[in-house]
Design a protein around this nucleic acid. Sequence first.
RNA 1: UGGGGUAUAGUGUAACGGUAGCACGACUGACUCUGGAUCAGUUAGUUGGGGUUCGAAUCCCUGUACCCCAGCCA
Length: 566
Amino acid sequence: MTEINDTNQNERLDFVRQIVADDMASGKWDGRVVTRFPPEPNGYLHIGHAKSIRLNFGIAEEFGGKCNLRFDDTNPCKEEQEYVDSIIEDVRWLGGGFGDKPLFGSDYFQQMYDWAVSLIKKGKAYVCDLTAEETRQYRGTLTEPGKDSPCRNRSIEENLDLFERMKAGEFPDGSKTLKAKIDMAHPNINMRDPVMYRILHAEHHRTGDNWCIYPMYDWAHGLEDSVEGITHSICTLEFENHRPLYDWFLDALEIYHPQQIEFARLNLTYTVMSKRKLLQLVKEGYVSGWDDPRMPTVCGLRRRGFSSEAICNFCKVIGVNKFNSTIDFALLEHCLRDHLNKTSPRVMAVLKPLKVVITNYPEGQSEEMDAINNPEDPNAGTRKVPFSKVLYLEEEDFMEEPVKKFFRLAPGREVRLRYAYFITCNEVVKNDRGNIVELRCTYDPETRGGDAPDGRKVKATLHWVSAKHALDAEVRLYDHLFNKENPDEVDEGNTFLDNMNPNSLEVVTNCKIEPFLRGTKALDRWQFERIGYFCTDTDSSVEKLIFNKTVGLKDTWAKIQKQQQK
RNA sequence: UGGGGUAUAGUGUAACGGUAGCACGACUGACUCUGGAUCAGUUAGUUGGGGUUCGAAUCCCUGUACCCCAGCCA
C-alpha cells in the first residue's frame, strides 16, 4: 500500500490530484504514480513552469510516486546545453528531486525509430514527398477537409525503403517526411495525417550528427511517456487538441498508454510569460539577461531575492484548473512577504541619507546599541549597532512643514531612533539653493534603548545609521517591467514592448548600511527595517556592496500620501 | 461558418442535489520601539433564459461570452 503524505483530508484536491487519487483507489495503475516535467531546453524556466514543476513533483511526493525531469529535446535547431544546465539548477532549487540524473527524450531516438518502422509495417504511416507549403495546402482549413497526399498509398515496402534512406541521409532537408495515415477529413486538424519525422541535417546538443531525421512532438511525447511508464502525463491546455493523437499513436503501437491530463497555464498581472517574448527582452537588451531581477524567470526571481519556499507556497495557493485566469501579482508578493517576514534578519539601511548631528552628544564618543535580529524568530538573536554623534536618517522621514498624518521628524518634534534614543529636531540647515543638507537635533540620554522613563510617547520610530561606522552601498529598486496589468493589451500597431515601464529600475548609490552587513554573500536575504526586503546581488563584492530590493514592506504612509494627492 | 475546451465577489479558488465558504486586494478599527508583523471587522459572487426537484452553482434544454487548433515548433 502506498503511503499518502501531505494530503490533508480537509483540503480539497484539485481536479488533477482527484484523478490521481481516484486511480489509486481503483488500482488503475497498480498503485503507481509516475509523473514528469518535460521542458524543451530552448529557454529559461519561468514562474509558470514553477506551477507545473510543483504540480508534477508535488503529486509524486504526496502519493508516494516519482517525477522525472525529462528534456523534450527533439528539435536540434533551437536547443542548447546552456538551457539544460539552467533548467536542472532551477528544478532542483524548487525542490524537484528527480533522482541521480535528468532524462532526455533524445535517448529514445532509436526506440522511436523502431516504433515508426513498425507503424509503417502496419500500414499506418507513409513517407510523403510533399513540401511544407504543399502539406499546408493539402491540410485544408478549419472548416474545409483536406485532401489525400499523392504518396498516401505507397506500398509498405517502398515506405520502409524510403524511410530508411531518410535516416541514412540520402535526402535534403524538407524534401520528405514520415506521416501518420489517419484521416485527411478529420474535424481535428491534428489528425489530418500529422508529420512524425522531418529531415534536419543539424547538430543535436546531445546526439551530435547521429541523426538527420527528428521526431515531431506529437509522435515523440507519448512514446517518451510510455518508455518511462508515466501514469499521468500532465500538460497545459493547448495540448487538449492533441490528446486524440497522443492516444492514437499509443493505441496503434499497442504499447503502454499513460493518461494525458491538461491544466491551465499560469498568467500573472504586469508580466509576460511567453518564451518568445522573454527571449526578445533578453536578446534586444531590454533587460540585463535571463536573470535580470525584473524577469519572471526562476533565476530572475532568485536573484531578486525570492525564496523557493515563497514560490512553492504561491503555487499551492493558486490552485489548478482548466480555465484561463490571471493571478494578481499582489498574491505572489503576499506569499513572498509571508515567508520573508519569518526568515529575514532585520538590519538598518538608509537609502537616501540625510545628515543629522546630535548637538548634545559628546564629540568623538560612540556606543553600541542592542538590536533584535528578527522579532518573528527568537532564535535569530541580537546584534550590536554602533551609535555616534553624526547619523544618517532617511530623507523622506523628515518634513520641514509636516502635512497632516505625517508623524515622523519635523522641526520641534520628538521621535525615537530605533533601539537608540529619542531625538528632537531643533534646526534645519540648508545650502545656497535652499536644499536641506543637515538637521541639528538633541537627544535625551534618559531614553537610551528607546523608552522614556517618564513614560512619554512618540508617534514615530525611525531607522538610522551612524555616519562614521556606515558602509556605502548601491541599492537597485525595482518595479513591474510593464505598466499595464496585461502587457499584451496594446493599441493597433503597438506591441507589448510599448507597455514597458520606463521606471522599472532605479539605481540608488551612496546608500548607508549598518556595519553588520560587511562580508555579506550573494543572495543573502535581509529586511531593511521600515523599507522592505532586500537581497545581496550576485554582482556585490566586499569593495562594492550591491543590494536588490525584493519587495517593499506594506506601506500605509505611502497609501495615505496617495490619497492626499487626490 | 469545423473541432476541442471553459464560465462562482475586483482577483484567485472551494462547495461533488441540502446554510455559497476561503485567500488575496480594497476599506474600518485595535495593538505596536518597523506607519512592518499581528488581531478584529466591513465590502462584494453563481454567464442569460427556460425546465426537473420539497430543494439547483451542481441535473436537463437553450442562448451568450471567452480560450485553443490550419509549424516539417513544443
